[in-house]
Design a protein around this nucleic acid. Sequence first.
DNA 1: TGATGAACATACTACCGAGTATGTTGTCAA
DNA 2: TTGACAACATACTCGGTAGTATGTTCATCA
Lengths: 214, 214
Amino acid sequence: MSLGVREHVVDSSRADILRAAATCFMERGYASTSIDDVARSLGATKGRIYHHFPSKADLFAEVFRAGMDMNYQAVEPYRHLPGPALPRWRKMAMVHVLQMIDTKPFQRAVWIGVEMHLRGATTPAQREVFNELLEYRSTYGKLFRETLLQGREEGVFRFEDMSIANQLMFMTLNSPIFWYSPRVGETRSDIEVIARQVVDFAQGGLRGTQENPT
Amino acid sequence: MSLGVREHVVDSSRADILRAAATCFMERGYASTSIDDVARSLGATKGRIYHHFPSKADLFAEVFRAGMDMNYQAVEPYRHLPGPALPRWRKMAMVHVLQMIDTKPFQRAVWIGVEMHLRGATTPAQREVFNELLEYRSTYGKLFRETLLQGREEGVFRFEDMSIANQLMFMTLNSPIFWYSPRVGETRSDIEVIARQVVDFAQGGLRGTQENPT
DNA sequence: TGATGAACATACTACCGAGTATGTTGTCAA
DNA sequence: TTGACAACATACTCGGTAGTATGTTCATCA
């Protein structure tokens, strides 16, 4: 079952390509990123990319999947924390936001992928792959949805429309992929302060205006 | 000073092109939208586009400017409402969200434009135009910023970092450009219900968790 | 009424980028 | 040591697209 040195080298090369591709997609978007761009950022040529990935669309899909995997694995350990909804939601939200910051290029790619799918900018052949990935994303969304519902029952959340609340919450929690950029000399605790503010905003939003208390 | 029939026809043709272009940019993004796409959606050819706009980048810039103009003109009447910050902020926010819904194609173009600028995906020549447009956008942002500060002094808002709060607020208020789509048989009041939920979420977010009340 | 120019359409060029076909080099197994 | 294959690089093709150059039509005005 253990992988030989050769396999590790291959996987490492693949992973390097995925990282470079994620960064390129983040910086220029999908359409404006050429395979040559990705190769150049690796000091390589197209041959290397096409040796590991059959097409640009497949390369992008792998980046997308990698980003989703990171999220799922980060949040999954906390989804079944027992007890009231709020602390569990806060933990999950915090982990999610930190993921957005720590793996920004991949998360931007996920965003781009969702956008592309929503406007149907994929070939029928790529549709299948994408549908599977978005199913994956949908599953991830459900992790939060359950906790949102429990929180509403417990009175800590007061949103009206579940669908809208879900959109707004994820919009808030995902937003660092657009505006966060590391500062020089930034420590881990600085990042956590930022993430906490994002989570606080989302929590306040989910509670609403609270103009009719009791 | 009054325009003749000829000028009106010209302006109407230009406006048609801008609307079609905004829709195309929304549906496929900037890079994936060809001038032929825009022309085809008008039942015309490239010649018509290039007769009115010198380049694709200029066409896009005009769409961007039109979107910003709509926002500014919609919000400006309320920026100097006297009295406490909260009702003024709510009015401005509500108008802003309704603008996002009513002129979605243009607002998506504005978003795309900001993204493009942030990653520097513009030629030096287009930089000047873009810088002016983003200055415009910055001015628009200040309309809200003043009210945010007043609201914090009055205790209705409790955010820590002004920059982050501003980002999160606009992220929330802008978000309908991504997830709103008209429903069949939807009335104006249905739309206003949606917009109100968005504004409520943003207001709750700006107030924060409120775990240390007084 | 004919000349002029605006408002397009048509036909073309030049380039860029995805994908392919074909080398080249190093490694490992027999 | 050799041959076979993985992991690339190199050198192409080919379709699509921005931009241009050149018609064409119609209204307006001298």
